[in-house]
Simulated assay, not measured.
Amino acid sequence: MVAHKDFESNCKRIAKQIMKDCQDPTSDAMFFGTTSVDVSSSLIDDFNKVGAKSYIKGINKYLNGCSVTFKTIGTDDNWCLCFNVEFDDVDAEFED
């Protein structure tokens, strides 16, 4: 779970979790193009205060090989930020 520290640190740690999910061939990111990151309620408060656009720009700065767009804020056992994932390199074999 990513707990709130400061904006830049939050973006780095969220991006790290996204990259971890994007490198797992069995993850939702690979199959469905979505991923979620468990976060603290204080990070949700900061996310709402700063704004999704700023956070997405900050997160994408630390991603390699993919980028994300904001999908929704959700709850399961914890708060989570849900993202749509777009991979940079498309394998020509699977391209439509």
Rank of each mutant, 00 (worst) to 15 (best):
N48P: 04
T75Q: 15
S40Q: 09
T35Q: 06
A29P: 01
D28W: 07
D96M: 05
A29R: 00
G74C: 02
G58D: 11
F87I: 14
I59C: 01
V37W: 02
S36T: 06
T34E: 04
E93S: 08
V39E: 03
E8Y: 06
V68E: 00
E95N: 06
D91I: 10
N84Q: 10
E8W: 06
F32A: 14
T35H: 04
T69D: 12
A52I: 07
V2T: 09
T26M: 02
F94S: 13
D89T: 09
K49P: 05
P25S: 07
I44V: 14
F32I: 14
L81I: 15
F7G: 02
V2L: 06
C66E: 12
Y62C: 12
K5D: 12
N10H: 06
S54C: 11
S9F: 05
V50S: 11
H4N: 11
G33D: 05
Y62M: 06
D89W: 06
I44S: 04
S54D: 15
G74R: 07
G51L: 11
L81W: 02
E93H: 07
N84G: 04
W79Q: 14
D24Y: 12
F47E: 00
I59N: 01
Y55H: 03
F70A: 05
Q23R: 15
V68A: 08
N64M: 13
N48H: 08
D77V: 10
G58A: 12
D96W: 06
D38H: 13
F7M: 03
G74W: 03
N10R: 01
A92L: 13
I14T: 05
D45K: 15
E8H: 11
D88N: 12
S67R: 09
V85I: 11
A29V: 05
C80T: 07
K57L: 11
D91F: 07
V2R: 03
V68F: 05
V2K: 03
N84C: 08
I73T: 11
L43M: 10
S42M: 08
D91W: 03
K16W: 04
V50R: 05
K5Y: 10
C66F: 09
F87L: 09
I14M: 00
N78F: 12
S27I: 08
F32Y: 15
D91C: 09
Y55G: 00
D38Q: 13
S42G: 01
S67M: 14
Q23E: 15
I44H: 02
I56A: 05
N64T: 15
G74M: 05
A15W: 05
K20W: 10
P25I: 09
